[in-house]
Design a protein around this nucleic acid. Structure first.
Lengths: 211, 211
DNA sequence: CGCTTGAGGTAACGATGTTTCCTATGGTAA
DNA sequence: TTACCATAGGAAACATCGTTACCTCAAGCG
């Protein structure tokens, strides 16, 4: 009993340290960008040595993979406020817009999710599957918008939506799109273009686009 | 005269060294990825010291900016073979597909164009304008597809196309899309969805999409 | 011909990810 | 209980990175 408690306490401390490192890393990234995430700086902030990152994550690559998973999980944090919306169409639109808001609010977290190979990190197949799974609420809402839609079709349309959302957001973050209102229109219109193409009922007046 | 020749020869050697560094850098990136591009390795391959990169580019960031511009210029290399196509619609489709081919053939060059801030490099406003200018042939073809289209509208539709193309290609490169044939369909269908949405005449049977 | 200017090599500097060595603490078998 | 052992984590060294003083030296100038 005492032994079990001690073991459990050790496991908890391990988890606590892991969580502390992850949150500190996320904070560093939010504050000074992904390039500022250094093992020494991270360790100093949590008051441990850099070795802790190796025992817990196996190195910086493992740390980045954990941050990758956390960043995708963060996408779902918006869901609670949105699931209350009755209309599936409005809910789908809200989910899509929250995706963009998330990316614009935490561009460096988004960079972890879609950053290139310069970081030396490439997510594992399992992590990529996890990333895809975070689109489940959106796929579910999508099927509510078009009853009778097969799961395969929903998957395909979801990928199309994801691609267009990511495309607009990615170009916007790199300032390859004009201004904010241009990106607003672009996001809504490409979204509605894809939904219309796949015959997903979507009232056009839902998206207020000045033409 | 002899003075001018000598000066010209010096300038030429400068340009030669600059070109040699750029091509060697591109080769290193193609061979071992963007993370393998090191000033020491680059200098060794061209048989100069790392200082040459500083006098010619001002540092690694300047080198990356030059590679950024070159990578976008590489997009237009496909144009000559494509401009021969008579039908504007088929030409537009060919241009779009060549964009994807370019990205899939040189993923690391594409990473330089759209890589995140982890490299510590962010293109200047002028470089971004140059990047946008490489879409000119596509915009021109777009206007041929829909006579009477204003330049502003063409710009907007071009941005929508770019976003969807980049979105699909980006997810594909990160293996966030199923297989090759899935990405094939996704690319063509999102493209046609956008063009249809903006009322660009585009024969549906031009894109062979098994439904 | 003496002077200046600038490109480019050498070597050092600070910082990074990683590894090696060591310590100490908690669990385990006799 | 006691002696052994496994493991987490700290300290410091290592290889490598981008960068920068410092120097050399050849080309252009009066």
């Amino acid at each position: 009993m005492a032994v079990f408690d001690a073991r459990q306490q050790r496991a908890e401390m391990r988890q606590d340290l892991r969580a502390a490192l992850l949150s500190a890393a996320a904070r560093i990234i939010s504050e000074d960008g992904l390039g500022a995430l250094t093992l020494r700086r991270l360790a100093e902030r949590v008051n441990v040595s850099t070795k802790a990152v190796y025992t817990l994550f196996g190195g910086k690559e493992g740390l980045l993979e954990a941050l990758y998973l956390d960043a995708f999980d963060g996408l779902e944090v918006f869901a609670p406020e949105i699931t209350a919306i009755a209309s599936p169409q409005e809910r789908l639109l809200a989910l899509a817009r929250s995706y963009r808001t998330y990316a614009l609010d935490w561009p460096d977290r988004y960079a972890v999710m879609f950053g290139d190979a310069a970081t030396g990190f490439s997510p594992s197949a399992e992590s990529r599957r996890h990333a895809w799974n975070t689109t489940r609420p959106m796929r579910h809402t999508l099927m509510e918008c078009k009853p009778g839609m097969s799961a395969e079709e929903a998957d395909f349309v979801m990928r199309a939506m994801w691609a267009t959302m990511h495309g607009v957001v990615s170009l916007e973050l790199r300032q390859l799109i004009g201004g904010r209102e241009m990106a607003d229109r672009l996001f809504d219109e490409t979204l509605i273009a894809v939904l219309n193409h796949f015959a997903v009922p979507f009232p056009a007046d839902l998206v207020k686009v000045p033409r």
